[in-house]
Amino acid sequence: MEKDISFILNGEKVSVSCNPLKTLLKTLREDINHTEVKAGCEQGECGSCTVIVDGKIVNSCIFAVGQAEGKNIVTIAGLCKEPTLKGGLHPLQKIFIEEGAVQCGFCTPGMILAAKVLLDKTFPNMPTDDEIRAAISGNLCRCTGYSKIFSAVKKTAKYLKEKK
């Protein structure tokens, strides 16, 4: 049973025709070629498939695409679409690269989206260390590069605060 489902993806309206119980992850990757959303454990544990739905991070691997109807979804590819960035990388992306907070890179999209939601929430204040740890607690890094990820998030928060 297929159904037409429409949602906003990275600022653009998208319509897909698929079974509403197909996961959002599979729909994004297989039907509309958004392979920047990574398929890791596919059981809601690792956070690789994290996307932002209406301002909140969710695991797209356990999210029925039928429930995405009318929602505003942002993937890592949508971060640089913010008008103020003029097509450039988001500060979080830039600082992750500068800090070397990327090893194999598989967890990076989810990690950055989790950090973005935290920074949106705490801005213009700096998040506490505990808040950063809690925010990225749903994203597992198999390379265990947590220290550099942690410092990249902190450095971005400082950068955004000073820029303001």
């Binding site: 994290t50 969710v58 989790a114 809690a134």
Partner: peptide, 9 residues
């Protein structure tokens, strides 16, 4: 209860 992603759903 779970990760932020789970708690949001």
């Amino acid at each position: 209860l779970g990760t932020p992603q789970i708690a949001n759903r």
